[in-house]
Amino acid sequence: MAEPAPPMPAPTISQAPLPQAPVLNVEGLTVRFAGAPAAVVEDVGFSVARGRTLAIVGESGCGKSVTSLALMGLLPPAARVAGRAVFAGGVDLLDMPPRARADLRGDRVAMIFQEPMTSLNPAFTIGDQIAESVVRHRGATARDARARALAMLDLVRIPAAAERLDAYPHEMSGGMRQRAMIAMALANDPALVIADEPTTALDVTIQAQILALLAGLQRDTGTAVILITHDLGVVAEVADDVVVMYAGRAVEGGPVSALFDDPQHPYTIGLMGAMPALGRRTGRLATIPGAVPLPADMPPGCRFATRCPFADARCAAERPPVRAFGAGHGAACWHAPIEGFGVAA
């Protein structure tokens, strides 16, 4: 375990040195809805490289989905988005003309949603929906696009793909719809896929199929993946790097092994302790007292201060900077590591 280092200049979560230029580098992402007392996402930063999976994990209301929608430019007009999200070393996703962004979306940057039934159009066949995106972005002929759609359904291992091409979404099971959704997302070989709770609506054996499928496709294509999830089990299973969000802020981030073996932020520790283990029972589950504060009641300092057993006056008043706890591992807590709590203070 590393000694706490002095505060870093930028209050963003750092990560292990990336092997190459990141596919996406996000800095200071802030989303505020007009009239809301607090930003729903505040000063969040991370990056993800080719072939890597970054998991953004947190509970309801932590801002993980708003983060993904902001990157895709899918937030309603009432949302004010600030910060930078440099894609492939060039364009800023947060500062693009709508037309250019629409060209990028579904092509170089694709999204997989939680509930394929609500994100697939019920009035069009699966084949038409995949082909449409190939025609739209690649200018392919209808015949070539249909061939591409068939190849994609084969790639995501949908049985009897040629027949499924003409199936409507309601004629498929949840797992098959999610495969179709993935086929559509990957149809144009995107450099980045944002998957927002892609397996949450699925049964556990189907989830295992979809996660294995995604991992295999990522290996073959080198696509970078941002995985939005609430499930620490899924994170442990597939992520290379993790950002833990709480109430709109990134509270801890780093390589997946550092997060699980050396968690620093009390929220990360409590969240991991609250999750029932699959091993023999060892006693009661740890609980995090209370609930996430309403935006109007958000403390000015650390947003976890209202629920944190270690919080003191400074926590409530001053926002803790991100400090490094090892290569690429950072946490925003005044008291980390908590073994020192009460000793130094």
Binding site: P159, S173, G175, M176, D203, V204, T205, I206, Q207, A208, Q209, L211, A212, D231, L232, G233, V234, V235, A236, E237, A239, V256, S257, F260, D261, M272, M275, A277, L278
Partner: peptide
């Protein structure tokens, strides 16, 4: 056996290759 093998284990050191159950119910 298949059901239990499908559950993601919240420990990155427990990562293992899986042969997920094929097909749908």
């Amino acid at each position: 056996q298949a059901l239990l093998a499908s559950v993601p284990v919240p420990n990155p050191r427990a990562r293992r290759p899986r042969a997920p159950l094929e097909g749908d119910m």
